[in-house]
Design a protein around this nucleic acid. Sequence first.
DNA 1: TTGAAAGCGCTAACAG
DNA 2: CTGTTAGCGCTTTCAA
Lengths: 375, 375
Amino acid sequence: MTRVGGRGTGPAAPRSVDVARLAGVSQKTVSRVLNGERYVSDEVRRRVLEAAEELGYRLNNAARALASGRTRSIGVVTLGTALYGPASLLIGIERAARDAGYALRVVNTLEGDPGGVVGAVESLLEQGVDGIVVSEPIDEGAVSLSVDVPVLVLGAPAAFGGPRVVAAGVGAELLARAATEHLLDLGHVTVHHLAGPQRWFAARDRLHGWRAALTARDREQPPVIEGDWSAASGYAAGRELAHDSSLTAVFAANDDMAIGLIRALADAGLRVPDDVSVVGFDDIPVSAYVTPPLTTVRQPFDAVAHDGLRLLVQAIEKPDVELPPPNDPPVELVLRASTAPPSPRKTGRSTRSTASGPRGGAHAPPAADEASSTD
Amino acid sequence: MTRVGGRGTGPAAPRSVDVARLAGVSQKTVSRVLNGERYVSDEVRRRVLEAAEELGYRLNNAARALASGRTRSIGVVTLGTALYGPASLLIGIERAARDAGYALRVVNTLEGDPGGVVGAVESLLEQGVDGIVVSEPIDEGAVSLSVDVPVLVLGAPAAFGGPRVVAAGVGAELLARAATEHLLDLGHVTVHHLAGPQRWFAARDRLHGWRAALTARDREQPPVIEGDWSAASGYAAGRELAHDSSLTAVFAANDDMAIGLIRALADAGLRVPDDVSVVGFDDIPVSAYVTPPLTTVRQPFDAVAHDGLRLLVQAIEKPDVELPPPNDPPVELVLRASTAPPSPRKTGRSTRSTASGPRGGAHAPPAADEASSTD
DNA sequence: TTGAAAGCGCTAACAG
DNA sequence: CTGTTAGCGCTTTCAA
């Protein structure tokens, strides 16, 4: 039986003076010990800690914040969605914040809410935070964040203006480029793109990466189809694309859409990867187990969150020191069975090829994932 | 160009006295206006609001909390995982909390962390919260939460002891029962269960629901296989189950495992739903688009979060009023193509049945979801 | 309907 | 190494 707290419901919570009295020292000394300051004899430190333990003393954060002007907490503005990307980022941010000694305050912006980020930031400021993370925002027009605390924008470089705004990409553009290049390397003449909603910076980054890959090799850019991240929108896109006789390879901006897309292609009689190769984005947990297992790129959410928070914390604690440039996150392409070289007759859907791709086709054991790191 | 904040970096933030001075009233009156108290003339209210606006005044929450003893924020203890369930619940909680006028503090417990919940609660208490939500915890042995604030435990009825602990189920047991009954109704003699990790209360609820359904109809209970929620573990389970000649129907404790399971069955030459029917749990967004589209039960996360928070807020604000019993969330079974009556020869996997299930087999258009509400 | 005074529990300076 | 003295910016009495 583990117990939390020590005191019952009755008596008032002990304060630091109570601890001081019990330990036979001044209140200030208690404060010193609890804040890990130097210049406290081991003997005194021990006594204070003991007294605090005995009383079940718990620091009052409100008082501390009021007196010091610092709250030791960081606010996060994120989208209220269970999408794998944003959710994973939030987890990474929480972890990194806690490691750095900061608590987390979270506010979700509802998509479509006008002035969403601005309102959310405003509310965080009122709650009291030392810094703010804006995670993978969507475009709301030019927004300037003239706030007193540093702001880290994750996944939307240059989305916000402001004196203390620091942006960190998530490397999505590089990843998208790698995904596209993978398809080109397999021999596809060009690659279609099933994009995310273009109000999201995250979606634009991927579009740009795709475009960059094609441009670099002088390939034609097929018209882009825009989805809304959902498998349903991927399915709808797949129904359209199935009519396109030039279609041999698609880069989808996330795995959910890729899965919907593949299903639509299958329903239209096109086989993946025999007729069409598909690459997803995110490496969601099920992607290795759908049919066929999905080739995708993994986003390094933890690394991004960790690096980003390091910047933010430095901006909070050492405002004068120049911020180091964020390091580019690694590109990790996860090769599975949804991609293969184009079939011999490029428009050869009429004769369904019976030979599988080089990696064994759709039924390669999921365990056989290869991951190729490109930097 | 929207601007947040008004003041630059230089001058100190305006305080309520500044507003009072500008409006020509006392500080207390400013406080009254800002807290929406009565007994303020409209004229004065207007002047105060105007002055606040002009100065770009922002309430100082730390000072308010210190003086009032209330923080107007709620702490959430959740698992650091991007699993669909916990992530969706968190979103629901955030929304409900905000609607009720509370901010959110979030702490993740890392699975395997000893004393995870206790430590997390401790840290929230230190940060200052008026109430705590423990969301879908895992079993850590008997834990008593003797804290001064009310605690809402979501998805683990009776998991924690304590004076002000209120528990609210998420209805998982009923849902699991409905899922199992659906398979029995189709004519399956019994139903196997691919369970979640039994340290999770959420997993146990589903197990109990499955068991209850079988017991009620006097059916044999096949041995339970335990996964870890991941599609990978579902795949592993599927390899085992494929050898079981009595297998005709499986209820998986979440969709991810169901998807891995289906893939393993397919790899073993078993067809879903022709040879084996599979029901998942959660209705994750891709479940309608995998092959075959997954029959599953949807968890009413929003309703659960909303109802739970209503209880918590009441416990915070009116500690003396008796709490109303939580209402049972609705059961929503989403019928897709992964379930069908058992094939005529129950052990008839040798002759792969060529006829599809009654709803058109694997290729039913995803749009054709039927949802059946069972209460 | 409004105002004046007195803290909330801590940290920041400055002494010793 | 330790203690003293002031506040931090609000809300809470209580009085007008």
